[in-house]
Amino acid sequence: MKVVGIAGSNVGSKTRTAMDYTLKIAREKYPDAEVTLVDLAEYEMVFSDGRNYWDYEGDTKYVTETIMAADAIIIGTPTFQASIPATLKNIFDLLPVNAFRDKVVSMLVTAGTAKHYLMLEQQLKPILAYMKAHIVQTYVFIEEKDFHRKEIVNDDVLFRLERLIDDTVQLVDAYAEIRKAKDVEYDF
């Protein structure tokens, strides 16, 4: 199983911190999984111009092909101006409309206040649904108060991150079984 974590911003540290915790849990609990972090702050991405993702070069090609090869994607995003960052939106624009078909996508969000949880419900989930993702319905919302000196200090957040990983892997396994049963029906 290939799991790709996306740290969806090119600024700040809280989302990257949360992704590091999350992917550490994934590697410890599921050592057979191939876990990759794509931190958008570490790549020189070009803006989408309508080409197919495989026609881009350099970092843009690497990032999009890494995402497309994943079985599961964990999106970590901060909340900026009650919305997703442009760097994350650009990723969605670079990929085809059916990019997440047969992929499980789970999410974690960092925000300054609890009021920003609606961003995920009203913006991110509809984009993922449009792109045909199997969305893990529960997500982890992490507020400013849950961090101290680039560490997560709220044990409940750590518990929820662990549960997010478990839910993601279980959903990948469930959909793999469903696809396998469907393939048997066609007998070719």
Rank of each mutant, 00 (worst) to 15 (best):
F159G: 08
K29N: 12
E144P: 02
M19R: 08
Y56I: 09
S48E: 04
I165R: 07
Y53C: 03
A86S: 14
E57F: 09
V46L: 05
F47I: 11
A41D: 07
E42I: 06
A41C: 10
H148M: 06
Y30D: 02
S48I: 02
A41W: 00
L88Y: 04
V4L: 04
I25C: 06
I73H: 00
A133S: 12
K182M: 15
N10P: 07
V3W: 03
V63E: 10
A176Y: 10
F159N: 09
K125C: 00
E57L: 13
T64Y: 04
I135Y: 09
F80D: 05
G112F: 00
E143C: 08
P85F: 02
Y21T: 05
Y21H: 10
V157C: 03
R101E: 15
D71N: 15
A72E: 12
Q122F: 11
Q81T: 13
N98H: 10
L95C: 11
I67M: 06
V97A: 10
D20L: 07
E34M: 12
N154T: 14
L124P: 01
V63G: 11
D187Y: 10
K2M: 02
T17E: 04
V157N: 05
K2R: 15
M68Q: 12
Y117K: 13
D156P: 01
P126K: 03
M119T: 15
V63N: 12
K24P: 04
V4C: 07
W54K: 14
A33D: 15
F159V: 13
Y53P: 02
G5K: 07
I84R: 00
H134K: 10
D146I: 00
I25G: 06
I142E: 01
D156G: 09
L94F: 01
T22P: 08
V104S: 14
K132M: 07
M131V: 01
H148Y: 09
E34G: 09
Y139F: 15
Q123K: 09
T36P: 01
L128K: 02
Q137Y: 08
V104Y: 14
A111C: 08
T22D: 10
S106N: 08
E42H: 13
D183K: 14
A72H: 11
N10W: 02
E44N: 12
D187T: 08
L37Q: 11
T77K: 02
T36K: 13
P78V: 02
E143P: 03
Q170M: 11
A69P: 10
I91M: 13
G50T: 04
V46N: 00
K132T: 06
D146E: 06
K29G: 06
L37I: 14
P126H: 03
V157F: 06
E185S: 09
A41P: 04
P126S: 02
K103V: 04
A129F: 08
M19S: 07
V153S: 04
K103Q: 09
L37T: 11
R16V: 00
L108W: 04
I178Y: 12
V35M: 07
D166I: 12
S106Y: 03
N154A: 05
L171A: 14
G12S: 09
I75K: 03
K61I: 01
P78R: 05
P31T: 12
I67W: 03
F141H: 13
H134I: 15
D32P: 01
P31L: 04
E34L: 10
L171K: 12
S9K: 11
I75V: 15
Q137I: 03
K145Y: 08
D93W: 13
I127P: 02
K89Y: 01
N154Y: 08
K115V: 00
N90A: 13
I91L: 09
M45V: 11
V4D: 05
